[in-house]
Amino acid sequence: MNTLMRVIAYAVIIFIAAPLVIVVPMSLSTASSLQFPPPGYWLGYYASYFSDPGWLRPTWNSIVIASATTVLTMILVVPAAFALVRHKFWGKGVANLMLMMPMAVPHIVMAVGYYSVFGQMRLVHTHLGVILAHTCLSVPITFLVLSANLKGFDRTLERAARSLGASPLQTFGHVTLPILRPGLLISALFAFIQSFDETVVAIFISGRDAETLPRKMFDSIRQEADPVIAVISSLLFLIVAIALIAPHVVSALRGRFTTKGQEKALIAQ
């Protein structure tokens, strides 16, 4: 039983790792279509990516749209999260559920709705249209992350600040906000990623003008022509990999330095 589980588990690790491992080498391949093993290695397609407006424009669009979505989402979600975490009121359960709904509705369904409604509002093929749609889809995850942080916030800290002479506004600025800052940043990051990765709605409403990176990638993969797709894939993967591994490396290094520092301190004594 145990050994069987173990064997399966190792196989699963390979299954999960394989597609991630393949991405970076593929981007370095000289082959113009999918080919394994690669006939040779070069950086030529990276150069193409960084010089092709057909790729740079969607990348820039995605960054703009995701940033704007993040700002708008935070403006809407932060007050709502405060209301729902900190207050008891009639209709709270329903409000909570309503907030989560955009997560429960398949994106294809929303895509149909946006395609039609935004079409009438002349919002299709505009940045604004995509931003408005993405904000809606980003609300639930941002709210979840932020409210989890808010629930962990010790409110006696605010009482302490008040007792020490801070007005409600000062308390918010000097105590609540700084302590919640990491939580706010993380929930904003979730909003950003949600928008940056969103594909289905973007396929339907972003058009040529507001074309996002995922939409461009989708088209490119569908046409199976452009080897630059390997480059952008490997870049996207590397960003994630570095973002996830870097903190571990930093803390490992820091740990080593502090132990060294402590050793020195011990020797000095």
Binding site: I16, P19, L20, L34, F36, I193, I221, A230, S233, L244
Partner: peptide, 24 residues
């Protein structure tokens, strides 16, 4: 590894499978 996979755009992962399972 799992979080890395999770956070990698599923377009990227879809593409990777295309490479893995492709004719060549």
């Amino acid at each position: 590894l799992i979080t890395m996979s999770f956070w990698t755009s599923f377009l990227v992962r879809t593409y990777a499978w295309m490479v893995l399972l492709g004719n060549n």
